[in-house]
Nucleic acid binder design. Structure first.
Length: 832
RNA sequence: GCCUGGGUGGCGGAAUAGGCAGACGCAAGGGACUUAAAAUCCCUUGGGGCUUCGUCCCCGUGCGGGUUCGAUUCCCGCCCCAGGCACCA
């Protein structure tokens, strides 16, 4: 056996053997408990990065661990293969997106294989394959029939740089999530998935998904943004129109002194028509729309407004309220109109001061009788309280008044209770080439016609020349868009937009259950066996994107009868980022660590080990060049221990006796071995804390070296106990570092694959400590420690503690007020 | 502003149920081996103190209070950092 650890030879050797044996292939087996373990599949950008290595290392430990614990584990991998970088590369390097994508996939697959992950590659697919996206087009058609997908003209987020529309979830702080450039509003005809149909169920389940991090659930709840309130109608003075507002503060209605409308509000042109304000208002609206369309990501615009020349009537006071158009009112939320209550809303307050509008106090704090005069207010009182200046509603609490005032108006048909959400429908049209075509045809006679099922897939043509300006070639490609109407047969035009790539990733995890099924999207038997995903692992950045879309898609597919579960991912682990020098790795910062370089320098096992050891999975991981050296050194230490003692270990039979038959250092090592099995098992199974699991195996290795030097080698149990410790060490480390452990296992003369070995179990007797170290405190300070037999009764502990000389020193001349005994741990003597 | 996390040695981190703070690793220092270096192995390592160098004493988990025999852990108030949302009516 090589005295030195040479990772490359053994890693490549075992990877080859595993592949030849098809070791990681899994089949449905109803006699076994299944476990579906999934890591977020990568976009084939060219090379994997350290974030992938970390994500997939975590997943591989869990997969191998569960496998060894008797589960039938589905652990697949594939490619999220549609997307813009392929198009950009195509324009820049003149390579077709398809070739670029498939070349990248081929390379990245070798990288993943080189890392030794236990994927069942027979289930692999790329989402840009028509055999994949044809089912997505089928779902689109079915959703169209069900009214779950629809087309409408709307203001949408447009990224000029990416030349496409973005969903609300894909705009971060006013900027494109991909290129980080400002997003503008553009009015376009777009396809939308009706995610809002499922808003209540999506929200409900955020309280039931107890295997998800609370952080992600909170983010989703905030994104959904449910609020309870009222809709109230305000008649327009002198016109047969009304302005309807949504408010969560109906209790402040008596304080509403003016009205604010969004610039896009449809009533605006009607209201100002014929007034002397008309031109000024229309100019203001144009200017506001223009500003909205331009770069407004950084600071919030100065609050500005303009009087429309019209008034509406406050339905409870009968007062005339001037109607303004205000640049801060959003057409997309509520009704696009806000009743302004300057005394109780800071924004309205500032607006009222600026335009010299009346302020009326109608709520006072519950803990004060003082009703401030509007002139003395310096800011709005936004909290709830007790109503004043509100006629018959005076004295009610805000909560009571919201109900009472809404009901009062509801009797006259002027108000109703209303639940409002922030979540809006998911816009999925993308003006891009490298995506799944939306299977729709536009016919002058028949209108919008879905492509019939039998004509699917609508294949994305690969023989197109890309346009140099980055625009999609589909709208100018006759061979693609020219078609005949499926209904009337007359010439018609295909939809040339493609689907958001988040659509592909919203259902790929189901397809892994039956990737070879070619007559229907899913094979119910296999899907019912494997799904839902038991454990999903990926980055937090998808908290409200992919993870919300997938939840919606599963519910939609369920209601269309394709599947029969409610939620895609039972448990979710969001791992932290890999950072270097305190910042996310990026080319511009020059702090990128390439996995290939690391594998080359240290081997896959070391890279995996470091990723697992440096931090618990949910925290960010700071890459450290010294840290990875340490990981390498540890594996060298493991290797060397076996290599240096290989003959003795090989010739020994693994110790199978009881701990009571051992003594001294050998008993200690045997106990430590069992304690390590317990610790590693619990850390992996219950906590996914691989860092502490690895720390425990390090302790065992340290003890192996110590025991070799300190125990009596002539003891006939010496090598059997050593072998017992070494074999268990190998088994415990195998999910994390599968190659070195496989090699050592075979060097010891064992056969079979660790992947198929049962996970070691520990002996309760052997874990128990014979002697306990009891801490003795005086007034809560540690003053002494004593070693006692484990079965010493509590009363005896107290007696022993009080007899200690050290303790007597501290208690002498003082009264013992109390003695606290914590079984097996500590005695605290309280003196005064 | 609001909502979530988090703040522990020189560094990454540990302490799982209120009971020895700092496991394990890195870095640093010392020693062994060596002609020498590398590699390896062993030891020390939170800060401070000393007529006694100890099974010694004091301080110490962002800050200030509280509960408790005992608080990194629970409660109240504050500061700072990270992430998310942000004109949402």
């Amino acid at each position: 056996m090589e005295p030195k650890y040479h990772p490359h030879a053994i890693e490549e050797k075992w990877q080859k053997i595993w592949e030849e044996e098809d070791l990681f292939r899994v089949m449905e087996d109803p006699s076994k408990k299944k476990f579906y373990l999934l890591e977020m599949f990568p976009y084939p950008s060219g090379r994997i990065h350290m974030g992938h290595v970390r994500n997939y290392s975590i997943g591989d430990v869990v997969a191998r661990f569960l496998r060894m614990n008797g589960y039938n584990v589905l652990h697949p991998m594939g490619w999220d293969a549609f997307g813009m970088p392929a198009e950009n590369a195509a324009i820049k390097a003149k390579i077709h997106p398809a070739k670029w994508t498939y070349d990248n996939i081929a390379y990245m697959k070798t990288q993943l294989k080189r890392l030794g992950f236990s994927y069942d590659w027979s289930r692999e697919f790329a989402t840009c394959d028509p055999e994949y996206y044809k089912w997505e087009q089928l779902f689109f058609i079915k959703m169209f029939e069900k009214g779950l997908v629809y087309r409408k003209k709307a203001y949408v987020n447009w990224c000029e740089h990416c030349q496409t529309v973005l969903a609300n979830e894909q705009v971060e702080g006013g900027a494109c999530w991909r290129c980080e450039r400002p997003v503008v509003q553009k009015e376009m005809e777009q396809w939308f998935f009706k995610i809002t149909d499922y808003v209540e169920e999506l929200l409900d389940y955020t309280y039931k998904l107890d295997g998800w991090p609370e952080k992600v659930l909170v983010m989703q709840r905030n994104w959904i943004g449910k609020s309870h309130g009222s809709e109230i109608d305000f008649p327009v003075d002198g016109l047969d129109e009304k302005v309807t507002v949504f408010t969560t503060r109906a209790d402040t209605l008596f304080g509403a002194t003016f009205m604010s409308l969004a610039p896009e509000h449809p009533l605006v042109p009607i209201l100002c028509r014929g007034t002397e304000q008309e031109q000024k208002v229309l100019d203001f609206v144009e200017e506001a729309k223009r500003l909205k369309r331009s770069d407004r990501m950084e600071e919030i615009l100065e609050k500005e407004g303009i009087f429309t020349g019209r008034y509406c009537i406050n339905p409870v006071t009968g007062d005339k309220m001037p109607i303004f158009v205000a640049n801060f009112v959003l057409m997309e939320y509520g009704t696009g109109a806000v009743m302004a209550v300057p005394a109780h809303d800071q924004r309205d307050f500032e607006f009222a001061r600026k335009y010299d509008l009346p302020v009326k106090v109608v709520v006072r704090p519950a803990d004060s009788d003082h009703i401030p005069d509007p002139s003395e207010l310096t800011e709005a009182f936004e909290e709830e309280g007790i109503l004043v200046n509100s006629g018959q509603f005076d004295g009610l609490t805000s909560k009571e008044a919201k109900k009472a005032i809404t009901e009062h108006l509801a009797e006259r048909g002027m108000a109703r209770f209303k639940v409002q959400y922030r979540l809006r429908d998911w816009g999925i049209s993308r003006q891009r080439y490298w995506g799944a075509p939306i299977p729709v045809v536009y016919c002058d006679n028949c209108g919008t016609v879905p492509v019939p099922e039998k004509d699917l897939p609508v294949v994305l043509p690969l023989d197109l020349e890309l346009l140099p300006n980055g625009g999609s070639p589909l709208p100018v490609s006759e061979s693609f868009y020219k078609t005949n109407c499926p209904k009337c047969g007359k010439p018609a035009r295909r939809e040339t937009d493609t689907m958001d790539t988040f659509v592909e990733s919203s259902w790929y995890f189901i397809r892994f259950a039956c990737a070879d099924e070619n007559t229907r999207p899913f094979d119910p038997d296999r899907v019912n066996y494997w799904l839902p995903v038991d454990q999903y692992i990926g980055g937090i950045e998808h908290a409200v994107l992919h993870l919300l879309y997938s939840r919606f898609f599963v519910k939609a597919l369920r209601d269309m009868g394709y599947i029969s579960f409610d939620e895609p991912f039972t448990r979710l682990l969001t791992q932290g980022m890999v950072i270097k020098d305190g910042a996310k790795m990026s080319k511009s910062k020059g702090n990128v660590v390439d996995p290939d370089d690391m594998v080359q320098a240290y081997g896959a096992d070391t890279v995996r080990l470091f990723c697992l050891f440096a931090a618990p999975p949910e925290k960010d991981l700071e890459w450290s060049d010294q840290g990875i050296e340490g990981a390498y050194r540890f594996l060298g230490r493991v290797w060397r221990f076996v290599a240096e003692n290989i003959d003795n270990l090989r010739n020994a039979a693994t110790y199978s006796g009881k701990i009571s038959e051992l003594k001294g250092p050998l008993a200690d090592l045997f106990r430590k071995t069992h304690q390590t099995i317990k610790k590693v098992t619990e850390d992996i199974k219950e906590r996914y804390h691989f860092n502490t699991a690895i720390a425990a195996t390090m302790e065992l290795v340290n003890m192996l070296y110590q025991t070799r030097d300190r125990a009596d080698e002539k003891d006939e149990s010496f090598w059997p106990v050593m072998r017992h410790a070494v074999e268990n060490l190998i088994l415990l480390l195998s999910p994390m570092v599968p190659h070195i452990t496989e090699e050592l296992w075979h060097q010891l003369g064992n056969s079979g694959r660790l992947f198929n070995m049962p996970w070691p179990s520990y002996d309760e007797e052997a874990v128990k400590v014979e002697d306990l170290l009891i801490v003795v405190q005086v007034n809560g300070k540690v003053r002494d420690k004593m070693t006692v037999p484990a079965d010493t009764p509590d009363s005896e502990l107290e007696k022993l503690a009080l007899e200690r000389d050290r303790i007597k020193q501290f208690t002498e001349g003082k009264t013992i007020r109390k003695v606290v005994v914590v079984p097996k741990k500590l005695v605290n003597v309280v003196v005064g």
